[in-house]
Amino acid sequence: MKSLKFILAGAVTLLVILIVVSNTVETTGPAPARRSSAADDGQLKIGVLNSAPVYYTEGSGAKGFDYEMALGVSESLGIKPSFVPMDFADLFTALDAGEIDMIASQVSVTEEREKAYDFSHPYFVTYLSFTTPKNSPIRKLKDVNGTKVAIVDGTAQEGILKARFPKAEIVKRKNEAAALEAVAAGKADSFFYDAPFTAGLIKHAPIPMEERIVFPSDKAPIAFVFRKGDGLRDQADKAIDEMIVNGDWLRIKTDYFEQYPLSERFREQGVE
């Protein structure tokens, strides 16, 4: 009888040990892998700024320069695109978290950004502008120093201002609407941003505004952004090069930026 009790006790003890070990293995095992690229589910998630001319809706369809360029890349890759609109300040956070695979939002290539991300071949160059109230004394670049300049936080405009206009006071805001509000409220004298956005923004500005200064910057190319080491970057490069050679790039550029002179960067690639 005692032997039977010992056997039963041993069996119970062994069962408890197995349960404990089983639970320990389950809870300490590897966490589910984070989405690493579009190849994970056959869909290319593209982060875009929900603002013309990057990405906007017209009627029942989407439009935009960066939208059409990204669409061309996804078609070349044979991957279904999914566009995710958000504020510019949230784009890099979403890319870091694996919520999107690529940023297509007039992002300038900078030294600092290249340390953390991979960039595609350029598909545009930066055209910059200062937007001011209609009665502003700011009329030329030399007038900017010593004034308060609103920018969208996280954009390359901050570095450009510090380098070119060291005496300007930078006023950071989360998005374009907030930056224009700062100018309207007298907290900033101008809004420094990418020129392609200006016409659309002025229409919805809280006070009458105008684009006072526009200048191109070949040293600030625009490119798609990927996480470091994502092989999609190399495939995107091939797609962009092909769009430039076959004329698709020039057609899209003309549709949205016909008034902008062709950059030397693209002339060198044979675009005429």
Rank of each mutant, 00 (worst) to 15 (best):
2 K>T: 15
3 S>K: 09
4 L>P: 10
6 F>E: 13
11 A>I: 13
19 I>V: 15
24 T>F: 14
35 R>S: 11
41 D>T: 01
45 K>N: 12
46 I>G: 14
51 S>H: 11
59 G>A: 06
71 L>P: 00
79 I>S: 05
88 F>G: 13
96 D>C: 11
97 A>L: 15
99 E>I: 07
99 E>D: 15
100 I>S: 12
100 I>C: 15
104 A>K: 09
105 S>Q: 08
111 E>K: 09
112 E>N: 11
114 E>Y: 02
117 Y>V: 10
122 P>R: 00
124 F>P: 00
138 I>W: 00
144 V>P: 10
148 K>V: 01
148 K>M: 04
150 A>I: 06
153 D>G: 14
155 T>Q: 11
158 E>S: 12
159 G>Y: 05
160 I>S: 05
161 L>R: 06
169 E>S: 05
174 K>S: 15
174 K>E: 15
183 V>I: 06
184 A>P: 09
185 A>W: 06
185 A>L: 12
190 S>I: 00
194 D>I: 03
203 K>C: 09
212 R>K: 13
217 S>D: 14
219 K>E: 14
221 P>D: 06
224 F>W: 01
226 F>K: 02
230 D>F: 05
230 D>R: 02
231 G>S: 13
234 D>K: 07
235 Q>P: 12
238 K>T: 15
239 A>G: 13
253 K>V: 12
254 T>F: 08
258 E>P: 04
261 P>W: 04
263 S>P: 06
